[in-house]
Design a protein around this nucleic acid. Sequence first.
DNA 1: AGCTGATCATAT
DNA 2: ATATGATCAGCT
Length: 224
Amino acid sequence: MVTSPPLSENELLESASKIAGKTLRQIANQQRLETPDNQTHHKGWVGQLLELSLGATAGSLPEPDFLHIGVELKTLPLNRTGKPKESTFVCAINLTNLESQWENSLVQRKLSRVLWLPIEADPDIPLAARRIGSAILWSPDKDQESVLRRDWEELMDMIAMGELEQITAHQGQYLQIRPKASNSKALCKGINSEGEEILTLPRGFYLRTILTMQILNQHDPEIK
DNA sequence: AGCTGATCATAT
DNA sequence: ATATGATCAGCT
């Protein structure tokens, strides 16, 4: 089944409502894809499957998945109690050519409109049998945006000061910075406090589950 | 059990 | 190497 890109948010929501309640096996069959037994060697499989199914187009470009309607697609793995099981990767960070304004940042653009797709992710449920939940089309409210912005500014300030190596995943209320690499030996260019080029671990921005849990609860206050 | 740092696959 | 899609797995 080939899905063409949605022309509007409503079209996207309609496609999403058609797959709600279905299992990953059903969607994989529609796409003529094999379902792996586990995700250890297929960590991005669920996300790519849903991109295909909903007609996402951005590929591996640093842009929202549905560029023409400005919507980013994110799967949201839930544990058996219905809480987000993992943090959510947002984007990689260019450490040598720093973005200077939140308003124009990639984090802001990707998070300004997100279609969250909750997915059962209790390890006791076989991957193929996991069900897709009801999609949530979300934009940060004023409070959420101000926290995101403050986190982003604090973290980017540290990078700008050459304090990259002092940044830990403990910082940030909603946004954190963590490694985003093939392994701990993969290096990229960064800048130290003397302004010199150094080699360091590639990093990315991630959303903490405290925010994604809040998003779930805003949409579905009585389900837990 | 939750969290941080590490890791896996693929496209360009 | 850098971007996308993320989850794994050991430590606290």
